[in-house]
Amino acid sequence: MELTTLWFIIIAFLWVGYFALEGFDFGVGTLLPFLARNDTERRVMINTIGPVWDGNEVWVLVAGGATFAAFPEWYATLFSGFYLPLLLILVALILRGLAFEYRHKRPEAKWQANWDRAIIFGSVIPAFLWGVAFANIVRGVPIDADFEFTGTVFTLLNPYGLLGGMVTLSLFLTHGAMFIALKTVGDIRHRARALAIKLGLVAAVLAVVFMVWTQADTGNARSAIAFVLAAVVLLAGLFAAAKGREGWAFTGTFGTIALAVSGLFLALFPDVMPSSTDVANSLTTTNAAATAYTLKVMSWVAIAFTPIVLMYQAWSYWVFRKRIGTHHIPATH
């Protein structure tokens, strides 16, 4: 296997991990005003992701760094052309991180409500804009012969891109509701499970339309298999939720997101950023890649450190595996 192909697979794996893990964080944050009926329940929801959200964000940092090092032309075109959406995502993630750290610092209701709004904003914006960004990457954007983006931010707000944003938002909401049902006890658990089924049905419709559109435009046999499996796994997860099997239900939404994102990368390969202006201007795993020596060094570093990161994250999930409820939340002083 060529190193350029290997690093395309590694970057795809990093994005799959990011969306499947950070996706439920975004879902929990977005559902904060809809599932929680009082401050104690809001604290329960925040505590379900409290020990893991920052570890989940590491995946996007590594994905961005790997793209910069392995495919510098892809990184340059992507971050210059998608500057405003990526900036909004960055601001949203910063505000969300601050909210998790500062919400409990003061007992005033107004103080906590303002930070709750920051959590919601910091969850909705990335959940939607990541879908818009990846939909445009797969579909193709205007790129000239110098591999420079020639469109505007409004170029990205096309029907296909907006549908992609709605798909990621709805899938992350379903994923987050499944996670809350899996991690809590009491009334909030039952409300989350019921809401997850309703959200999942909406997500299923949007996702099927998006995947059929993608398959018709840029898909291939491999992406078709991934998309079909994603749809089947989502329905299986919703069926498990209806039967009260929250563990299998969460596994279903996790698998759906992983398979759907994998399908996008399978539809994209061997391009990394197609040009809608002229196919000759498309960025591929060949013309966007770094030198062979750079990829070789990066491969050895990845072999050494990836298992350590995966083991640490698995350990953190194991330590914080138990359910929590309102009776675990101490009174505010």
Rank of each mutant, 00 (worst) to 15 (best):
L163T: 06
G325H: 00
N56I: 06
F34E: 02
A224P: 03
L35R: 10
A177W: 01
T294L: 11
T285Y: 04
Q112R: 15
A314S: 15
I11T: 09
H327A: 13
A63G: 14
P142I: 12
A177R: 02
L61N: 14
A109I: 04
G244W: 12
D146P: 05
W7D: 04
R191C: 10
A292L: 14
V233N: 03
W318D: 10
H327N: 14
R222P: 08
T284W: 11
I257M: 01
T30K: 03
I303M: 09
L162R: 07
L171S: 02
A226P: 09
K198A: 12
W318A: 14
L171P: 05
T332Q: 05
E101C: 01
M1V: 14
Q313L: 06
Y317H: 09
E2P: 15
V16Q: 09
T256K: 00
L78P: 04
G131I: 12
L268Q: 03
P142F: 05
M166F: 15
L98G: 01
L32T: 04
G161I: 05
A280S: 14
N158T: 07
I125M: 07
L259W: 04
V208Y: 03
R191F: 00
A36S: 15
T152A: 05
F154G: 00
L61F: 15
G27S: 02
G165F: 08
G165E: 11
F250P: 02
A36P: 08
F269V: 12
I125Y: 04
D146Q: 15
S80L: 10
Y18E: 09
